[in-house]
């Protein structure tokens, strides 16, 4: 994995930057690490092979989550899904689609309990 030379190639292809998000020399220098479309054009554009995805995700873990992220994480933790699922099955039934089952609590607890320390 390469080191960032602050060449700006990632910023030039970044849709968030194009939509006006304040961005420094690299997408990894901006203060808002969450306003990101996850398109990973930056990864493809980087001539140094910087692990932009990994560093972006890692840096988010050290920052305060935006409210919308908090809500989505809470929903995943409590229901297993990122979107509110109320009323979905009534609609699905109308079109002959299989109902979505609530994820069993036991499953979620096991999958989402904090990781054993690794590194």
């Amino acid at each position: 994995m390469g080191e960032c030379t602050r060449c700006g190639a990632c910023v030039r292809v970044c849709i968030a930057a194009r939509q006006g998000l304040a961005t420094g020399a690299s997408v990894l220098e901006r203060s808002d690490r969450f306003t990101c479309a996850g398109c990973w054009k930056c990864v493809e554009a980087c001539p140094e092979g910087v692990d932009i995805y990994g560093l972006m995700m890692q840096s988010r873990r050290y920052r305060e989550l935006p409210e919308s992220y908090k809500a989505a994480v809470r929903r995943i933790q409590s229901t297993g899904y990122a979107m509110p699922a109320e009323g979905v099955n009534a609609i699905r039934e109308m079109y002959g689609l299989r109902p979505i089952r609530r994820v069993r609590r036991r499953v979620l607890e096991k999958l989402l309990r904090a990781s054993e320390p690794e590194r």
Partner: peptide, 13 residues
Amino acid sequence: EFTCCSSTFMPSV
């Protein structure tokens, strides 16, 4: 049964 794939939310935390 299935769950959310984890999307961009879970890798962020």
